[in-house]
Design a protein around this nucleic acid. Structure first.
Length: 546
RNA sequence: GCGCCCGUAGCUCAGCGGAUCAGAGUAUUGGCCUCCGAAGCCAAGGGUCGUGGGUUCGAAUCCCGCCGGGCGCGCCA
């Protein structure tokens, strides 16, 4: 990894120190589990020793020598220690640890927010369900992930646009219209005359009944279609509202046809010279860009495949000024990733090859009473987002769906999230927040006086550990945003809440010694602020009472 | 068959730009409320990180094979 001709730089406390000829590295700091190893530790010396052809301990000693004066000037920590084969252990001074508390109280809700060096206009597209049925659990995961991701990127100083793409123009909509029409005519799924691959969910019957109650004519398929789509859009909006997710814009696929963008895209593809006719269809040579087979653009019946509006849609994202786009989809859509990117490349508009970004999530298995739940009365063949919200509540649903890595398949245990709610991670975090609020209610003093608290009184191991954890929050958010990994926020909050509960049980906050009490209250206020800010990113409430 | 993803404690999952990473929650067992909320805390047991190789002084982490699971591989969206 290292080129011995370059210079090794160690970035420490904001200063870059040239250490030795070698590689340019930014060794990240670890938090040792063993307190004897200090507050932070790094193994950079071991990592670069082979590249430099020198002993790790010698390198470590050189690093310590080179940074000694800067560290003494900063006063932030004790002299670095070298341990074992060449680990460098760092022990922070108490004043440096407690200082973060004042900064948090001052920053308030903006603690953990950063001003981006280069603010971008970013679009996050998520949910984007067809208006052919209620939102299911997978859409819920997308909603939780997408909204959290958008909030995290906003916290990094970017301008974020949340968009929902409505596939309201395809064959699926026709099936919906036929299904509703059949229901309105008194047919049931399986009856003679019931449309092939029709939608069998109970909601189809609801739509038909409402349609008839408005004295409309089932023979008018266009009227049935627009009524059904409008009905389901309204229902999805209600679900999203209940989930606390708001979109800046709903983009209709049908508009791409109406305003000519689909035709325009086809013409541009043909003009690119990468299309050809075969068996009555128009193909795009996507294999030129690494696809495993060419794709049909225009079917032999003259209609377009979904590929065309998808590409046309992403052209609008680019032209609307979103240099960065993140699409949240299920892994069952991963084959579209290549196709959309390739289609954009073929147009030759100068769009980057990796445009857009994708976060793909695996599907969620819902378990209740020890058995997998596959059926919902309302939707027929799947569990709906509404089911989850009704079973376990909005906060638990959001926290659960966002607390796993997106690409891990995970089991949503309804019983854990609901009936044994006292063992639920989201309540654990919320409880820490509510507990602190309760202490403040009992105290009854003026929080403004805490700004003057003597933080030097915080000398206990748990207190300093909490302060250190709080200090790591901004970087934790930044890292999670960088990795597009909302679950990291959930894990951080879990850890922070755990440290607080442990501290709370070990020490009284409200004590006789007023100076000590003020310092502890300041610490609690800072923890509360960090919990509230983190929960807000996940779209979970921070209750004062539970 | 090909492509992508995933196999870590009984269960649900973190960690995966190598070392100070064998972790959390839950479940099980034993303790802690005349004291700021016990939706909490403290402690114990529990895993050769699917498997076999390779790279490395050092691999849950990187590379290859195999096994097991998920999802794709339409002139469906």
């Amino acid at each position: 990894m290292a080129d011995p001709k370059e210079t090794v730089e160690l970035i420490l406390f904001g200063e870059v120190r040239k250490i030795a000829p070698g590689a340019s590295i930014t060794g990240h700091l670890e938090r040792p589990r063993n307190p004897a190893h200090g507050d932070y530790a790094t193994s950079v010396a071991l990592q670069i020793s082979s590249a430099l052809g020198r002993k790790p301990r010698d390198i470590a000693e050189q690093i310590v020598r080179a940074t000694r004066s800067a560290i003494e000037r900063s006063g932030a920590c004790d002299p670095l220690e070298i341990a074992g084969p060449g680990f460098i252990n760092i022990r922070l001074r108490q004043t440096a640890k407690a200082g973060i508390i004042r900064a948090i109280l001052q920053a308030g809700a903006s603690f953990g927010r950063a001003a981006a060096a280069k603010p971008e206009r970013i679009m996050v597209e998520f949910v984007s369900a067809n208006p052919t049925g209620p939102l299911h659990v997978g859409h819920g995961r997308q909603a939780a992930l997408g909204d959290a991701l958008a909030a995290m990127l906003e916290a990094q100083g970017h301008e974020v646009h949340r968009e929902y793409y409505y596939n309201d123009a395809g064959a699926q909509i026709d099936k919906l219209a036929w299904s509703v029409q059949a229901r309105a005519r008194g047919l049931k799924p399986g009856d003679p005359g019931w449309p092939e691959e029709g939608y069998a969910g109970e909601y189809v019957e609801d739509i038909a009944r409402d349609f008839l109650s408005e004295r409309k004519d089932p023979a008018d398929l266009g009227a049935v279609r627009s009524f059904a789509v409008g009905y389901l859009r309204g229902e999805q909006d209600a679900d999203l509202h209940a989930f606390g997710v708001k979109f800046d814009h709903y983009y209709l696929e049908s508009s791409l046809y109406a305003d000519g963008k689909v035709d325009e895209t086809v013409r541009a593809l043909v003009a690119s010279g990468r299309t050809y006719e075969r068996e009555g269809a128009l193909w795009l040579r996507t294999t030129d860009y690494g696809d495993d087979k060419d794709r049909v653009v225009r079917k032999s019946d003259g209609s377009y495949t979904y590929f065309v509006p998808d590409v046309a849609y992403h052209v609008t994202k680019w032209r609307r000024g979103f240099a960065r786009v993140i699409n949240i989809q299920g892994t069952d859509h991963h084959s579209t990733v290549t196709r959309v990117r390739v289609g954009l490349q073929a147009l030759g508009l100068g769009i980057p090859a990796g445009y857009p970004d994708y976060v793909l999530h695996s599907l969620v298995k819902v378990v209740r009473g020890g058995a997998e739940v596959k059926i919902s009365k309302r939707a027929g063949s799947y569990v709906t987002l509404r089911d989850l919200i009704e079973w376990v509540g909005r906060d638990a649903t959001r926290f659960f769906l966002v607390s796993r890595k997106a690409d891990s398949e995970f089991t949503f245990d309804v019983d854990l999230a609901r009936s044994r709610s006292d063992e639920n991670p989201v309540y654990y975090v919320q409880y820490a927040h509510a507990r602190i609020c309760s202490v403040f209610a009992q105290w009854g003093g003026d929080p403004a006086t805490l700004a003057a608290a003597d933080l030097g009184r915080l000398a206990g191991a748990k207190e300093l550990g909490l302060a250190q954890r709080l200090a790591e929050y901004p970087e934790a958010v930044a890292a999670a945003a960088r990795e597009l990994a909302p679950h990291a926020i959930a894990f951080f909050l879990r850890a922070l809440a755990g440290e607080f509960h442990s501290y709370y049980n070990a020490e009284r906050i409200l004590v006789e010694d007023e100076a000590l009490q003020a310092a502890r209250l300041a610490l609690c206020a800072a923890v509360r602020q960090a919990l509230a800010n983190g929960l807000a990113l996940l779209g979970v409430s921070a209750p004062e009472k539970m």
